[in-house]
Design a protein around this nucleic acid. Sequence first.
RNA 1: UGGGAUGUAGUGUAAUGGUAACACAGUAGAUUCUGGUUCUGCCUUUAGGGGUUCGAAUCCCUUCAUCCCAGCCA
Length: 569
Amino acid sequence: MDERIEEESTEKVPLNFLERIIEDDLANGRVPDNTIVTRFPPEPNGYLHIGHIKSICLNFGLAQKYQGRCHLRFDDTNPEKEDMEYINSIKSDIRWLGFDWGKYEYHASDYYQQLYEIAVRLIQEGKAYVDSLSAEQLKEYRGTLTEPGKNSPDRDRSIEENLRLFEEMHQGKHPEGSYILRAKIDMASPNLNLRDPALYRIKFASHPRTGDTWCIYPMYDFTHPISDAIENITHSICTLEFEDHRPAYDWATDIDGIEHAPHQYEFARLNINYLVMSKRRLLNLVKLGIVDGWDDPRMPTISGIRRRGYSPESMKDFISRIGVAKVESVVDYSLMEFCVREDLNKRATRLMVVLDPLKLVIDNYPDDKVEYFEATDNPEDPSSKTHQIPFTKELYIEREDFMEDPPKKYHRLYPGNEVRLKYAYYITATSVVKDADGNVVEVHCTYDPESRGGAAPDGRKVKGTSHWVSATEGVTIEARLYDKLFQTEYPGKATGNYLDDLNPDSLKIVTDAKAEPEILNAKVGDYLQFVRNGYFCVDGKVSTKEKLIFNRTATLKDSWAKLKEKMGV
RNA sequence: UGGGAUGUAGUGUAAUGGUAACACAGUAGAUUCUGGUUCUGCCUUUAGGGGUUCGAAUCCCUUCAUCCCAGCCA
């Protein structure tokens, strides 16, 4: 026991740069009460996507790891874009991932009064002023990346005048766009965020939470750092594009009365190839009707992947595997697929479902006989339960599992070849029935009664095993076969328009798949594997008892498909 | 032509002055009542150039490349 502990403590667990910072701060007594406090600060103006999962796992994960806490704070400072609908979806998405913010739920709008008072104080201290420049003039005065800006004529307005005007803005006496409150920092700063950034703007918009109480709303650069300070956030983690805002963050938290100013740290946001992640582009897909909605199983939104059948565990594993750093990076989609397959392989219930049915008739099997075979729910689980599958003379097999004229290395069913029907019998194909166009519509075979259970007493082996469903005892279901929404690694890279790279085959609907009766027990949230076809789940939105609809979460790896391609078949 | 940041296998992440590694992808094989799983092998790496040092991915100088910033968005 002691040895083990020693072993563990000497074992070097690689830390990411954020963990290093936190451990260093903790070790050097820089953290009040030795309690780190992080926050996840979504703006409620859209649905959470996979990129947010990284931020959620980071903020909640770090808090968990160091026995601190993580606040959920809605960054609701722009009433024109935000909505209660989003607030609710965000909460349910975070819960789905398995994180709990407990009582620490906040809204930046809770701080509007405090923010207002701080703004007044800044004016009194000569650190902020009311500017009447128009948006266009503001732009002119700001300068460019290479040229410094110039001071607004209003910059030297008296404190009394500023106070009066700001109060009038507050009271709604001035129209939108007529005035803004600006920080007085440095119009010549090489960092544009420091060229007297806007602190407050006038908006006669109703806020989802504060209603019409306010007609002036604080800006991000002012609200965010102060909200962090109010909540005693110790480590404020955000994405790389805010790096340039850090001086503004420090400016805002450098006000009297803040004992332990929070600090901002930036990490690289998550990018995944074959996916688009920006809210704008996702919204567009929804608006144009290219997808079924924000929760379309092809969408990289949390609600989308959830409906697709991804498990929260697999996504958390994915996030832990990609790591955290400051380098802009693009993660392979295949890693995410690997993670979901690995997780689902361990937990999915196996079912036999034929997606593209081909009739198979066993000529030497009794006409009306029904016998049952026992199938393991999950062979990966030693304590797995079993269920019964009915077997009859007429069955369906996968059309792909029979070829009249097979290529080399094809070891499924073809005339004269013997294969196994999983759990049941060895069969040998004898003849085919074709339609007028020459398509095979029925395969006839004979079975070996001695091979009952799927093995021959004489020890002879077969190379192929097919799944099957009884033609008379099976049930019909709908299967929705999803693939990547985009067919290029970087959608839009070639033409500039990401819609040019949509995958025309991102959804194939199979309305007459045949399934073993056990499928009737499948519930929303169950993880299933249709043997040899992939991982599936019950569609939580449209599936009904009368019409069962399943979504394909991911295919199984298919080395035969690769081989076929290589052989040029 | 301003400022900020970043460069390690195809991709992502370790190694924090002491033998460049792990995972995914790729590839070859073994096992298998899922052409799945599992197992084994292989492939490929410090952006370039200089310097410090017994020793550099790591420190210094320099060049190059990429990303972000000119909302009254966050």
